[in-house]
Write a protein that binds this DNA or RNA. Structure first.
Lengths: 115, 115
DNA sequence: AATATATTCAACCATATGGTTGAACATGAA
DNA sequence: TTCATGTTCAACCATATGGTTGAATATATT
């Protein structure tokens, strides 16, 4: 299995998205484009530090990127990364469909060994 | 905001999917169709109880359903539920696109107030 | 140089999570 | 009735998570 690394990334991604505040941050970033940490934090009833930590989680999951200019950090959404999850969904669905097709085959032909 | 409830469901769903073992269980269920808890557990280097707990998490997220017949519980994948996440992705992307379109407009017309 | 702003780091805390083991419960088989 | 099977419940444990506060760091501004 070369699977391990991408599985870890998927875990990181889904965990990052599984928090309501972080999803709100992503939404905000998509709406507003690149934003400073302080500006983002103003929207939440939570300390700046908490938001800073949330952003770090999103960054590790590669859901956002950071460009530091002077003392201010510009955070930007990286929605491409979502495809990691989408691809997994797709794979899961195709596995599901495959089983249904095989069942269908059996129903039609009266069994898998009718040659 | 009537949002709250569906946001909680999304959190439940993404958290459920964010664990590697639970994703493996879902894959297994898609491949094999309805399965007993014990049968599922045999594939993992983990106690039956641990798997039982994972299944409960998937069940709360409505990613699987359970049909109890006698003493055995038949667990089945419910891949429909994935659409909850897919719809959120879609929404996020459309918010992203909307901003890009507006930017584009500004580039073309030299500003948002050129009437 | 002194002060203000933007941000992270570190330590701490409460609660959640993912695992374990040992009963308990429900049902099937001898 | 007795024993075996399928599953959950309960208590426990270590680590992760999401929040806090108080410094520390880096860079602007006066």
């Amino acid at each position: 299995m070369v699977e391990h690394e991408s599985d870890k990334n998927l875990t990181l991604l889904l965990k990052a998205m599984s928090d309501s505040t972080r999803r709100a941050l992503l939404t905000q970033l998509c709406q507003q484009g690149a934003s400073r940490v302080t500006d983002l934090a103003n929207y939440y009833d939570m300390s700046l530090n908490a938001i800073s930590k949330h952003i770090k989680v999103l960054e590790k999951a590669e859901l956002v990127t950071r460009k530091t200019i002077g003392r201010t950090h510009w955070i930007e959404a990286n929605i491409q990364q979502i495809s990691l999850a989408e691809n997994w969904f797709k794979e899961l669905k195709s596995i599901w469909e495959l089983r249904l097709e095989k069942l269908d085959e059996i129903m039609k032909n009266g069994g898998p060994n009718n040659d």
